[in-house]
Amino acid sequence: MDLREEEFIYPGTRACAGCGMALIYRMALKALGPKTIGTVPASCLTVLHGMQGFCSTKISVLHTPFATTGAAASGILGSLEAKGLDDEICVLAFAGDGGTTDIGIQALSGAVERGTNFVYACYDNEAYMNTGVQRSGSTPLGAYSTTTPGGKTTHKKDMPKIMEAHGIPYVATANAAYPLDLYEKFQKARKIKGPKYIHILAPCPPGWGFDPKDTIKIGRLANETGFWPLYEVVDGIFYLSKKSKKLLNRENRKPIQDYLGSQKRFRDLGENIIKAYNEYIDNLWKNIEKRIEE
């Protein structure tokens, strides 16, 4: 595949070394190209963009209050429509997991229900990282955060499925560790009319507790253990992505301990948590199997 050469983020941003979100955003903007207007709520991505008056991206980005990303995207689209520019310019909403699965969920649901022609991307670092690691609805079972000091007691919310239930033309999962897959999904989304939702796992070295050099390795383990399958749902039809195909066979899945054990946020996991994870992953894949057969 030929990736666009041009970069849309100027170097020297405030993102941490080894940030999964930074790589995801870099790839997404490459895939969507210069005729894109973004909107971003309070998050690490705001910090990447920089201080008031300056911006580290070549594209224009509207910074919007935490709960309002979907509404802001609808507003941008409305103004583009009024100017007859809505076919030419892609509206991209980019929010964290807190901004998507918790506080922004109603604005997103509303925008999608109105049929807003936009791409909504959630980069999922599985907690409120910008404010120092508080749990979100997307924090996984057992993970430490400052608000779950004993480890989170519930699984993460299945946000892609919630979006799918809105009956939109395109839903996909992606992962910072598979930039080509991610790039293709954004390219595809740009060509589809209507609401598109892409949920991307974003390993975060300080928040998850691992060495910045291992961002890609850890992202890969999330796939290889079967914890974060890559797929697309196009007009209601489920497609398992190439990088996750072999995981249909249970024997090809790595033990979940390989993934959990590589991160400090999972440091004190008991046997019960491991058992719960194995059940969770088995269930996830049973459902995938069923959907493929349909």
Binding site: G12, T13, G50, F54
Partner: peptide
């Protein structure tokens, strides 16, 4: 009103 810059940080 944002000005795109290299080395924002």
């Amino acid at each position: 009103i944002q000005t795109p810059v290299e080395g924002e940080a």
